[in-house]
């Protein structure tokens, strides 16, 4: 699992590479924490294989913590991740871009 952080005017982009499984959750949590008060977090999932529920929980927790002050965008979502977001109803919570 590799997470690359890119900062720009729109906020923080985290490029996720590999699989965001339970083992990688801790690393992902750190990266999310490090976004601080960014108004927008974009998760670039083009290179992501799948996302485990533990990582989704971190996303939900971040969403709960930041509330409406921070927009979380999931971009480049593949079929597997798309299905997972669909079945958990999280595609309505986050902004999902294919």
């Amino acid at each position: 699992m590799e997470i690359t952080r890119i900062d720009d005017d729109n906020g923080v982009t985290l490029r996720l590479h590999g699989c965001l499984d339970t083992a990688a959750a801790a690393e992902f949590a750190t990266a999310l924490e490090a976004t601080g008060t960014a108004k927008r977090i974009t998760l670039d999932m083009k290179e992501l294989e799948f996302i485990a529920s533990s990582a989704l929980r971190l996303l939900v927790a971040t969403r709960k913590k930041r509330g409406n002050e921070c927009e979380i965008v999931l971009s480049g979502v593949n079929d597997v991740v798309g299905e997972v977001l669909d079945v958990t109803g999280l595609n309505e919570v986050f902004t999902v871009v294919k």
Binding site: D21, T22, F50, I51, A52, S53, N78, V80, E83, V84
Partner: peptide
């Protein structure tokens, strides 16, 4: 990917 995701859970 589906199998790995499910197995992880």
């Amino acid at each position: 990917a589906k199998i790995l995701n499910a197995a992880d859970e």
